[in-house]
């Protein structure tokens, strides 16, 4: 395997790590989003909303473990530089994830009078996790530095990432539910979409101003012409999504999965946009993929494992989604 050079391996693992982060953002994104906008005034709605993500959330969260794990094993120097700088927000993220993960199970098992407290814990934990993620993204974009300006920006980014998760979470609910809960999800999705759009516009404007090479990526012909397709597609999706949400729900539940599909495209566009902005850096302006990569021999070993196992993971994940297709009914533990 002569093409498995150190450089190619670094690129492959960079791509794999990026793919895991993207899959995490989309997959755990929708279940975090359901958590953030959990309807606190209607217990039956909460049960349905949580039932819709019940079989999936655990596997979704595993993508974060894989993403952080890949960063750790393939780019250890980057893992330690990034998490060193993001020490406190990362701890808050973990606490958020712990709270929501356990609340999810406790709510179904504790005394009835305590269930509502765990629902609040679920909602709060989801919010803490998404806000921390957005905050971390903001600090990352600003070059992993804490200045007044970057902290304000990171807080704004925290809110916008929360909005993006709320958007995709409600888009998921539109597909998974019916009736009043579905109508609520449509409203919430619209609202969250506006905030998400604002966030994407803000990052798109500020990022090139802060980072000189980002400016170059998006303005240097001829590649910039191709790259411009990404934001165009993204904004077109917002427009399409707005039209779609105005018309939903349709008879026979037609198009109920369209918003979720649109959200996925928006997530992919935003992510690819960010990845292109920073390539080849894995720590902005400090460390490239190629400098941070582990030794060739250990990456080769992981590479073969990944090539064999990832298709299998995809296959049984497909089985799980197929088994739980359709509207969420009152799922119960068995």
């Amino acid at each position: 395997m002569s093409w498995l050079t150190a450089e190619n391996l670094a690129l492959v693992f960079g791509a794999l790590t990026a793919l895991s982060v993207l899959l995490y953002a989309i997959l755990d994104g929708y279940d975090l989003g359901v958590g953030i906008t959990l309807p606190m005034h209607e217990e039956a709605w909460r049960d349905t909303a949580i039932a819709s993500i019940g079989p999936f959330w655990d596997a979704n969260e595993t993508w974060l473990v894989l993403a952080v794990g890949l960063l750790l094993v393939a780019f250890p120097a980057a893992h330690s530089a990034i998490l060193h700088a993001l020490y406190l927000p990362a701890a808050l993220l973990l606490i958020g994830l712990i709270l929501r993960g356990v609340a999810f199970d406790f709510r179904a098992k504790v005394k009835p009078e305590r269930k509502r407290n765990w629902d609040w814990t679920f909602k709060f934990g989801s919010f803490l996790a998404t806000f921390s993620q957005g905050f971390m993204l903001g600090i990352y974009v600003m070059g992993l530095e804490y200045r007044t300006g970057s902290i304000i920006f990171a807080c704004f980014s925290g809110l916008c990432v929360t909005a993006a998760y709320a958007m995709i979470g409600n888009a998921w609910l539109i597909g998974k539910t019916t009736g009043d809960l579905q109508r609520r999800a449509i409203r919430q999705c619209k609202l969250a979409g506006v905030w998400t759009l604002a966030g994407i516009l803000a990052v798109s404007a500020i990022n090139p101003l802060v980072n000189a090479n980002v400016y170059q990526v998006w303005t240097q012909p001829p590649l910039a012409y191709f790259f411009s397709a990404i934001p165009l597609l993204c904004f077109a999706m917002f427009a399409l999504g707005y039209v779609a949400l105005k018309r939903l729900p349709l008879p026979d539940d037609r198009g109920a999965w369209l918003p979720f599909f649109i959200c996925k495209v928006i997530f992919i566009c935003s992510f690819v946009g960010l990845a292109l902005s920073f390539y080849p850096f894995v720590v902005p302006n400090q460390l490239t993929l190629y400098e941070a990569a582990s030794s060739q021999e250990s990456l080769t070993i992981i590479f073969f494992g990944a090539v064999i196992v990832i298709p299998i993971i995809a296959a049984y994940t497909a089985v799980a989604y197929y088994a739980f297709r359709g509207k969420a009914d009152g799922l119960k533990y068995y």
């Binding site: 596997a59 894989l66 794990g69 094993v73 990944a306 049984y316 994940t317 739980f324 533990y333």
Partner: peptide
Amino acid sequence: LAYEILTAFFLEATMLGIMLFG
């Protein structure tokens, strides 16, 4: 660690959904 995540974590997490709700 990578092999642990790839061969164990995804398997148990995905199958857990089917086991609990399926």
